[in-house]
Design a protein around this nucleic acid. Structure first.
Length: 259
DNA sequence: ATGGTGGGGCTCCCA
């Protein structure tokens, strides 16, 4: 089972690039972030024609997450529990059924800038809710993963120029501590099991020639539960996607599971 | 210190 996450930065602008990558990479499941679309405007039938079941959790203009799956999905839920008045569409869950069942969670964690301010407060509060949801899922003891745009640079080695991010919401000590607290529940950063060290990024800003200078950061992550980590076969970043026509500022990350 | 780019959707917000 091949599962990918991809912050596409707008489905309308990315329908071509996303379709090309799906054809090439052929994931069974694609967790999409920043669809920037309401559910009614998502080009559902286009992806259904490519063989995917489509589940969206959209909102107008901003955020929005989706799941495309060639395998059957069960128990699809929308929104991160823990705040009934939160209207931002940043979380979607489903159980993917093949040889085994795996619970997949697609997430778009708040950016949090500028700091200090309400956006940073919202980021940390959202991470607290993520911690609680991870705890609940761990208690179930079923294999699960949480993947997407975490908007967290976990360590200095995850940035080409860590000094440029020192005071940014993506790398501040409180952001890193909140992320570490979640990982330390017993989750595995899938990419770090196959590629230790620096120089591996998932995001390059559109500005200032960041891609050409390889001035990137690693902020898109797969966190695996212990039962899911047991099934891990492979994890990769599809870096070349960033150099193709009309790219997103993020690239896909994917895992292959023995499931 | 500034401005650099891109998406959404509508004149400015968000990243």
């Amino acid at each position: 089972m091949k599962i990918a996450c991809f912050n596409i930065n707008g489905i309308k602008a990315r329908i071509g690039a996303l379709s090309d990558w799906l054809e090439e990479a052929d994931p069974d499941v694609a967790l999409l972030q920043e669809i920037k679309s309401i559910d009614e405007n998502f080009p559902r039938s286009h992806f259904e024609d490519m063989g995917y079941t489509v589940e969206t959790h959209g909102q107008k203009s901003f955020n929005g997450v989706a799941i495309l799956s060639k395998l059957p999905l069960e128990d699809v839920t929308f929104g991160l529990p823990g705040d009934d008045v939160d209207e931002q569409a940043r979380w979607i869950e489903a159980t993917v059924v093949d040889k085994r069942a795996v619970r997949v969670c697609g997430l778009y964690l708040p950016n949090g800038n500028p700091v200090p301010g309400p956006k940073y407060d919202y980021k940390l509060a959202w991470m607290e809710r993520l911690y609680a949801r991870a705890q609940e899922l761990l208690h179930s003891e079923e294999p699960f993963l949480m993947a997407g745009d975490y908007n967290v640079i976990p360590q200095d080695e995850d940035a080409a120029r860590p000094e440029a991010w020192e005071k940014d919401a993506l790398a501040l000590p409180d952001s890193r501590a909140a992320y570490r607290r979640i990982v330390n529940l017993g989750l595995t950063d899938a990419f770090r099991t196959v590629e230790p060290g620096s120089g591996h990024y998932t995001f390059w800003d559109y500005q200032a020639g960041a891609w050409n200078r390889n001035d990137g950061i690693r902020i898109d992550h797969f966190l695996l539960s212990p039962q899911c980590a047991d099934l891990l076969l492979e994890c990769r970043i599809d870096k070349e996607v960033r150099g193709q026509e009309k790219p997103s500022d993020h690239v896909p990350v994917w895992v292959r599971l023995n499931a």
